[in-house]
Nucleic acid binder design. Structure first.
Lengths: 218, 218
DNA sequence: GTGAGTGACTTGACGGCGTTAGGTGATTCT
DNA sequence: AGAATCACCTAACGCCGTCAAGTCACTCAC
């Protein structure tokens, strides 16, 4: 980027520098947020990490919530992305199984992000600086799950009493989420012999799908 | 309480008064904690509610965490209590189903308590004022679940690959917990058509049990 | 009865938090 | 060269959890 201002106007450079600062704030915030946790990460610590004053952050983000919301939305996109990769599988039941595993893998690979995305109380709707409603793209992932479940229902794969796609989607999503969030929050509890959450999720998916199928294969 | 000191020694009365103050702190804390949330409840607010100074609380509890931990432990007992009532059912599979529903009912009837008990990061082991390890009696409920699951395994009710009681317990617990915690945290999200969590839990239990059984009944 | 002792509770403060009003100074435009 | 912009800083506000030191009603031994 040494040849940055080849022919860009000064104004463009300034905008780019501002964008770089903004990104460095996001990077520092993400790193601290991942390593220290959301609550324990202070605006002062974020600012110190990039050599700025805490108030500088407020020229780029409305407040701490807005900063974390932006990180969160990027994570929602990443999650949706990793689920879309599964989308090419033809059989909606097998696709559901793979989506569940991919979801669990994402959560276990990014536990702090996952905690912030799904394990903190979200007040909807959130509004951005201009007063516009900000809708995190979690709907993308949910709609994708809903689509997969609906295909399975329409294809007659599931038992007749499981005709509500929302209920079926929330069952599967909730089940996986529960195993993972329980483990993330209580894995340190020595009173419980925790099993590896990925294996538990895999078993839960297998059991749930078999129990939901109209004609279980085996 | 006007006839309080009928014949009790002065020392006894003082102890009783201290216990009463302590209990009033617990009551006020519980009420605020339920209505305002854990994070939003301040020591100053708790103290103001009962007409004391914030520092007075520190003569009865080590810190805010200790105060909330005590409330939490009472809730764990209440949960274990409501699960014990199910204990008389003979069939371990049916008992598991009923325990799951009772667990969900408890969580939905006491959402704030549930949030604190299972949806906040717990650092174990916690220590009390004397440096002794405090183990919340959640192990009671978990051991009860484990016992029920083990009975089902030993009785040959479940499929052979589901031979690990811990895994099976964590699957069922996690599944129910997930549906409920997801709903508690995101029910306000207008982008998702949430179904009544109790019905979703019921369906999930039915599906999970059917998928786990060696010989599904229907 | 009285003086010492106890202990529940208060006063006043500390450091840290998120956040803000107002200033500063380099950069950019005219 | 002068004016304007704006990214960033200084200093502070009102919260928070917590604590050291004091107060003072009550209890008890003599």
């Amino acid at each position: 980027m040494t040849t940055s201002a080849i022919r860009s106007g000064s104004l463009a450079r300034r905008e780019r520098q501002k964008a770089e600062t903004r990104q460095s704030i996001l990077d520092a915030a993400r790193e601290l947020f991942v390593s220290e946790g959301v609550e324990a990460t202070t605006m002062r610590a974020i600012a110190a990490k990039i050599g700025y004053t805490p108030t500088a952050i407020y020229h780029h983000f409305q407040d701490k919530d807005a900063l974390l919301l932006e990180l969160c939305m990027a994570d929602f996109s990443a999650l949706a992305q990793s689920l879309y990769k599964i989308g090419r599988i033809e059989d909606p039941v097998e696709r559901l199984r793979r989506m569940g595993l991919a979801y669990a893998d994402f959560a276990l690979a990014n536990p702090s992000q996952y905690r912030f995305m799904f394990m903190t109380l979200m007040e909807h709707p959130t509004v951005d600086g201009c007063g516009n409603a900000v809708t995190p793209p979690d709907e993308d992932a949910y709609r994708f799950l809903l689509h997969t479940v609906t295909e399975g229902i329409d294809g007659g794969h599931y038992r007749p009493e499981l005709s509500d796609p929302h209920e079926l989607a929330q069952m599967t999503w909730g089940g996986i989420h529960g195993v993972i969030s329980l483990w993330l929050n209580h894995a340190n509890d020595p009173k419980i012999e925790w099993r590896a959450p990925r294996e538990t999720v895999r078993s839960l998916i297998d059991v749930t799908i078999r129990g939901a199928l109209r004609n279980p294969g085996s």
